[in-house]
């Protein structure tokens, strides 16, 4: 049953993505491009890019996009619901406990173990995206000569601007999009 599969996949994404935003990215890749093959790696890269350009959490964006493509509007609703249900239950439980005891000690403890793991996972998904961006392939080609010069330079400049000048990410993404179009027309 496709609706159940969608619900269950996004339920797991909702349940295990701790630390917001980018933390959901590796889990989404795992579920939609590896476990189920609902999206190709290229489509996954597209959805991350679209999610960055539109408002709303990436997990919700991915759930709607995958759901609608795999099983129509109802699929989108089911996938989004799957994504949100774990949050609702857990946050309400924590909220209840908070107003009851006003203490977060053990939660903080668990979180301190999760934070480094989450970073490792974001790094892992980030590396796949970097490969897509620089080599246009998920695997690193054997010959380093396969690196295309244009995206490598663009990446270098974008990264330097982010790090040194603290330019806002939205501007960087818009800027690289425009430069990509200009480059396409001139060469």
């Amino acid at each position: 049953m496709i609706y159940l599969e969608l619900f269950w996949s996004f339920f797991q994404i909702g349940l295990f993505s701790i630390g917001g935003g980018y933390a959901a990215m590796p889990l989404i890749r795992h579920q939609v491009a590896e476990v189920h093959r609902w999206l190709t790696m290229e489509q996954f890269a597209d959805i991350v890019t679209i999610a960055e350009m539109t408002p709303g959490p990436i997990a919700i964006n991915a759930a709607t996009f995958v759901g609608i493509r795999v099983a129509g509007p109802l699929g989108a609703v089911v996938a989004t619901a799957g994504c949100v249900v774990p949050s609702c239950l857990i946050v309400m439980l924590l909220g209840f406990l908070y107003y009851r005891f006003r203490g977060l000690g053990i939660v903080q403890g668990i979180l301190s173990g999760l934070r480094p793991a989450v970073i490792a996972m974001i790094a892992s998904a980030g590396i796949s995206l970097l490969r897509m961006a620089l080599f246009d392939a998920e695997e690193i080609p054997l010959a380093m000569g396969a690196v295309e010069l244009f995206p490598a330079v663009l990446f270098g400049v974008a990264f330097a601007l982010l790090r040194m000048k603290k330019v806002s990410p939205m501007r960087i993404i818009m800027g690289t999009g425009v430069i990509g179009m200009i480059f396409y027309f001139t060469f």
């Binding site: 350009m53 980030g126 974008a158 690289t176």
Partner: peptide
């Protein structure tokens, strides 16, 4: 072309 360009931007943001 725009999407490939933006993907480079997204990769830079995530690296950062």
């Amino acid at each position: 072309a725009a999407m490939s360009g933006m993907l480079v931007g997204v990769a830079a943001v995530i690296t950062d």
